[in-house]
């Protein structure tokens, strides 16, 4: 094993892991506050990707603006889907919320099929994304480094917000004990809206890098990142923000190791192995790698 292969492996794990960490973070933000496993999260990403596609193809906007609007689209869909579909359920059972998020996901997918096209569309990617660069003899596209950098910046900002702003502290409090937080004057609607907005924001960022990697957008594309998010969240711990980030990187690591070690005849079963590991994780360690402090009580 030489250093070059090791470095290549590390870059792969870190870039994939960064993307996965952002995906799972978006899921956990909502889960922490509402205890909702949001099945429609994948469609938040799809919406952003479509906006990237439309703006990239039909307008001459500079890349930065295109990205900005893509992210804003994610924020908007997160915010409005909560307002329209989830808010009426606040007082109902968790299962009703879960089923609703599944229904919202189906509705959005069908709307994309109907309104745009069932076929996949090529998303234009800025040239510098795919520019190959060389680090210590390892050649890698620039976007791999960009995602790592973006994630580092985003995580730092999020940590600062969550640690030092009153809103962030209140969100952490609310995800530990929602009722008590409300008793201290923390408004429930605000907390939930902010959680969905952050979730949508992260979905927007993910959409940029996801569509850059796959080069296309199609109505069902949300499924894969959603599943990745689930796994990462489960590995890291449903109740902990740092846990979900760790889970993203661990998932990328396991996935890369499986790709390298599985015999080619079994490679097509990689996802099955991955999910089998997840199930084993859930059974053996339902609280994940990092255990957050939480109460089983629900949003009321």
């Amino acid at each position: 094993m030489n250093a070059q292969i090791l470095l290549e492996f590390a870059i792969n794990v870190l870039s994939m892991g960064s993307l996965y960490a952002l995906i799972s973070l978006g899921l956990v933000f909502v889960f922490g506050i509402c205890k909702l496993v949001n099945y429609a999260y994948g469609e938040f990403i799809t919406v952003s990707a479509y906006v990237l596609y439309f703006l990239g193809v039909f307008t001459g906007l500079p890349w930065l603006l295109v990205f900005l609007f893509g992210i804003l689209a994610g924020v908007a869909v997160g915010f409005f889907s909560e307002l329209v579909a989830f808010r009426p359920f606040r007082e109902r059972s968790l299962d009703a919320l879960l089923v609703t998020s599944f229904a919202v996901s189906v509705i959005l997918q069908r709307l994309f099929q109907l309104g745009i096209s069932p076929r996949s569309k090529a998303v234009p990617v800025p040239a510098f994304f795919n520019m190959n660069i060389q680090i210590l003899g390892v050649i890698t596209p620039l976007r791999n480094l960009l995602i790592i950098g973006t994630t580092v910046v985003l995580l730092t900002v999020l940590v600062l917000i969550m640690k030092y702003t009153t809103l962030g502290v209140a969100m952490r409090g609310a995800s530990e004990n929602f009722v008590t937080a409300r008793l201290m004057g923390v408004p429930a609607n605000l907390m939930i809206s902010v959680a969905f907005i952050i979730s949508g924001f992260l979905a927007g960022v993910v959409a940029i890098f996801w569509s850059a990697r796959t080069g296309s957008v199609e109505p069902m594309m949300g499924g894969t990142p959603l599943l990745i998010g689930f796994i990462a969240v489960v590995i890291g711990g449903m109740h902990s923000l740092p846990g979900s980030v760790v889970g993203g990187y661990v998932y990328a690591f396991i996935s890369n190791v499986l790709s390298l070690t599985l015999p080619s005849s079994l490679l097509s079963f990689r996802d099955a192995f991955m999910f089998a590991i997840v199930i084993a994780f859930l059974v053996l360690k339902p609280e994940g790698l990092l255990r957050g402090n939480y109460q089983e009580e629900r949003v009321g």
Binding site: F31, L227, F269, F275
Partner: peptide
């Protein structure tokens, strides 16, 4: 709850991949 739902979901994917 949530963990149960995700497990069942993961199981569906395992079966589907198989």
């Amino acid at each position: 709850d949530a963990v149960g739902a995700i497990t069942q979901f993961a199981l569906l994917i395992v079966i589907n991949v198989m």
